[in-house]
Design a protein around this nucleic acid. Structure first.
Lengths: 205, 205
DNA sequence: CACCCGGCATGACAAATGTCAGAGACCGGT
DNA sequence: ACCGGTCTCTGACATTTGTCATGCCGGGTG
């Protein structure tokens, strides 16, 4: 079994890409696509049913994103290595992914041949993170926000007025403004909305 | 020549997808991928060099998006039909695309086989728009915003303060506030930031 | 223990934003 | 030529938001 083909699960909501990828990976003698999924929950179900060696997950999928699926797989199928592919490499996601026990994290700009190599790499027990994404994550550093600051900023994400945030967080309006101000200062933003964008980009909310 | 293979240009910034797609389309006897591009400008250059029959363009690419490329192609290579594929189907983009003379507009959730069919469809001179995207566009309706309202809202998109918007648009601050207020009311939003989001979703900015 | 530091929380004040009523320009219809 | 409507633009006013000084609590350090 260890010398047999690597059994692969493919999960991506874009049928066009998933199908094309399945076809290309099938050209590799030592890779076998045993299941495909178009959503997070479906990916989990397929993984339980087929117990693949490697799961190739898109980061953004309906239902549950790649990292959430990886977290569930971590406990349910410890032997299944997870490789995440993504279009928009946001630093915070990489951090979350590694915390979830993901073994590989690459942007979709890699070639199919390279992806096949990486599937073998993670199957062999090694890790691989795209160097550019890693650099971004390192330069972004850890979140300087305290728990409350992050919480309030999250509530402010959809442009809600302070009164609404205060109610949802059970705080006085002045307090909410205070946390927002503090977060804005720490992030070096012009106002809270720019702060939300920045925190999003760095994956801190 | 009219009975020969359809010459196709493929443009998508995600190498993984572009390569996979090229491989799958090559399996079709009557389709021939003659060029690939990873950015808007590159797509234009490739189109000039190879004069394809059909250009399959991703909507979101670095440099110039699919619609911009289509606009340029419209005048430079009138014989080249354009088919746009997209991950996130935002209604306004569809409208812009049709105005730019695009012949087909589909989400990436279609299968490769279906895409091959559609390439033949547009090459034959017919149009095709994904029914679901079309329904969204119709239900979204036309933009209720006036030219100035849309312009001001666009300047406000990145969370800039009113003073900055006023300077960039060469208007008094009061006027800017007025346009923003009007736009917010028309869109039924709580504040200008929510208004920006809504307008974005509907493709009105 | 006494001390200091950082996070949490608040209200008061200053600054930015949202709302309003109204004046002039332009266009299409009568 | 006239009128009604819409778009454009403005300043004045009310509301919301951002900033500041301050007090409280708990966790480390000397």
């Amino acid at each position: 079994m260890s010398t047999g083909a690597v059994r692969v699960l493919l999960a991506d909501d874009e049928h066009l890409i998933r199908g094309a990828l399945a076809a290309l990976l099938s050209l590799e003698d030592d890779l076998l696509v045993v299941a495909e999924a178009a959503s997070g929950p479906e990916a989990l179900a397929m993984a339980r049913a087929h117990e693949p060696d490697v799961a190739v997950l898109d980061l953004q999928m309906p239902g549950a994103d790649g990292v959430k699926v990886a977290t569930s797989l971590r406990t349910e199928l410890p032997g299944c290595k997870v490789l995440i592919v993504t279009s928009h490499g946001r630093p915070g996601h990489l951090k979350r992914a590694l915390a979830a026990g993901v073994r590989g994290f690459v942007p979709k700009t890699v070639s199919a041949r390279r992806l096949a190599e990486l599937i073998r790499t993670v199957h062999a027990g090694n890790r691989y993170v795209d160097p550019e994404l890693a650099a971004d994550a390192i330069s972004a550093g850890d979140s300087p926000l305290t728990a409350r600051e992050a919480e309030v900023l999250e509530h402010a994400a959809d442009g809600a007025p302070v009164a609404e945030i205060a109610e949802r967080a059970a705080l006085a309006e002045g307090t909410v403004r205070n946390y927002l101000s503090s977060a804005v200062t720490k992030l070096g933003a012009e106002n809270r909305h720019a702060a939300v964008r920045l925190a999003r980009e760095r994956g801190w909310v």
